[in-house]
Design a protein around this nucleic acid. Structure first.
Lengths: 179, 179
DNA sequence: TAAAGCATGTAAGAGGTTACATGATTGG
DNA sequence: CCAATCATGTAACCTCTTACATGCTTTA
């Protein structure tokens, strides 16, 4: 789960485990325990994606290897729109994705959320039709709908931005230079 | 993870596994696979919290036992504010919690979110101060702050509602009947 | 009667959680 | 020098995921 986050943070510069945890917290990934972080680091090291470099004292900084960079690019580009946290992690490293891939990724996520919104709305209708809901269940369903709508609106902003990025880029080919 | 949800849905009435999945989807818990649902059902059965009652054909409906109801109450009342999904699940079954416990639970969750908001704001400041962020990371941090603020506002509404519930209740004791 | 959808189940493997254990470094 | 914090690590347990396998029931 943290593979993407770890590789992404190490891509910026080498860091040790304890520091990684602080960065992850900043990015909004609260529940990261050392019991999962350190095993994850060793797993990634065993697979050759990262390399340990002893630092002062007990510290053990890791740096991203070449195949680690490839693996990072692979995970970053693989569609994974079902889980919110996973999408957010990918977004945190969007700078390493090329503009066209960004746009594709954002659109896919949007589609997914639209589907989720429909599900939520249908749930609201069907449960309401068979008798009045208790206040808290109704509040939850309504909140599900509201947050999904607001997430879609947010994505629309990101999509609009991504489009301008593409438009300002020099086209790779002279054909199909659609702005 | 689904224990609370399964027990809560079975508390309303007996259901079979396949149906449980549909109800869970309605409540907004999208990622529930049969590979986790059926083992969970047998786990709960082994512990005596639910009982199977064969239905037509292959169907196997489960009903909540007495100790299952106790276990449900225990999980429902245990604080668990760190994970969003878990809190939402508890909220979906708030009707089975007594008003005082609801209010306590909502306040705890609010406190937790306020802490998360502070973390997010500090992250925004500290990362901004050391050079400009790339657009998407900045958008993510800003979005973290925004959704947390909006969740707090939502909780404030729920807390206000919970207070009126308490106020309209007949006080259990004549002493301390603070409205 | 064949296809699609309903319904349950198992096995292997990956990965997370909690709890425990240890050692280094810094500040009062 | 003691406490707090930094820093890493292990082990047992649990649960989830994916993939596979099976059989029933409805409807076209």
């Amino acid at each position: 789960m943290f593979d993407l986050a770890i590789l992404g943070l190490l891509r910026r510069r080498p860091r040790h485990g304890y520091e990684l945890k602080a960065r992850l917290l900043e990015l909004g990934f609260a529940r990261v325990s050392f019991g999962s972080l350190y095993p994850a680091l060793r797993r990634l090291e065993k697979r050759g994606y990262i390399e340990a470099m002893r630092q002062t004292g007990r510290r053990k900084a890791y740096r991203l290897t070449d195949i680690g960079e490839l693996e990072f690019a692979r995970i970053l580009d693989s569609a994974d729109d079902d889980e919110d946290l996973r999408f957010n992690m990918r977004l945190a490293f969007f700078e390493y994705l090329e503009p066209a891939a960004r746009l594709r990724s954002l659109k896919q996520r949007r589609n997914h959320l639209v589907g989720r919104l429909r599900t939520a709305q249908r749930a609201m209708e069907s449960t309401t039709s068979q008798g009045p809901l208790d206040h808290y269940t109704a509040a939850l369903l309504q909140h599900n709908i509201g947050t999904t709508e607001s997430d879609i609106a947010w994505l629309d902003q990101l999509i609009a931005y991504a489009r301008t990025e593409q438009a300002t880029q020099v086209p790779r080919t002279l054909i199909g230079g659609k702005q």
